[in-house]
């Protein structure tokens, strides 16, 4: 079974189970593992209070401050995204100046612009190709809700295709608005801790 002998109260459950009989061997194993898992969880929770919390702090800090966006500029919002990257509104202060062309190396997808029905499968594919942990900022009105366009060809909100973490409104949002959205994303990464990835 591969279960190592543990100190503590396993002997009680073992004795309780021994009386059940051979026919319940599968059930025994199942219950034993479940009991073991509960014990492990309790131990981990206790250990986390003491030692994982600082590790978590470092990990979330590192994840926050070096997010690498993927190049996913679609329309007008992409130009404001480029303005954010440029020197006047420097996104490098946030550690994000390195826009990766390959989604495999990216953490953040800033969907900037209107997503047409022809582009939606491509969007999903790029999102799937990104490795965990990954976040999505929906930049602009068109990405958040379809924006000015409500017709046969525009997806009414990119959250119909990918899960979105932060919505930034505007048509197009000013670079300061995008930076505000990025700071909200920082808060989110902080709150999530190590649950992601």
């Amino acid at each position: 079974m591969g279960v190592a002998a543990q100190p503590g109260g396993f002997q009680d459950s073992d004795r309780a189970l021994q009386g059940a009989g051979e026919a319940q061997a599968g059930l025994e194993e199942d219950v034993r593992e479940r009991v073991l898992t509960t014990r492990l969880e309790t131990m981990l929770k206790w250990a986390k209070q003491v030692s994982i919390r600082p590790v978590e702090k470092v990990v979330t800090w590192a994840r926050q401050r070096s997010v690498w966006p993927a190049t996913f500029g679609l329309a007008c919002c992409a130009i404001e995204m480029m303005s954010t990257v440029a020197s006047d509104f420097d996104i490098a202060r946030f550690g994000m100046e390195l826009f990766r062309a390959s989604p495999r190396q990216a953490d953040l997808m800033i969907v900037s612009g209107r997503v047409s029905r022809k582009m939606a499968p491509v969007l999903r594919q790029i999102y799937d190709q990104m490795a965990e942990p990954k976040w999505v900022i929906s930049m602009g009105a068109c990405a958040s809700c379809g924006g000015v366009f409500n017709n046969y060809t525009i997806v009414q909100g990119v959250d119909r295709v990918v899960p979105v973490d932060v919505y930034v409104g505007g048509c197009p949002p000013r670079p300061e608005a995008l930076l505000n959205g990025i700071m909200k994303l920082y808060d989110k990464i902080q709150r999530e801790g190590m649950k992601k990835g």
Partner: peptide
């Protein structure tokens, strides 16, 4: 303008 189903409800 909104398209014809099911293509308008694809995504």
């Amino acid at each position: 303008l909104g398209g014809i189903e099911p293509w308008s409800e694809r995504y």
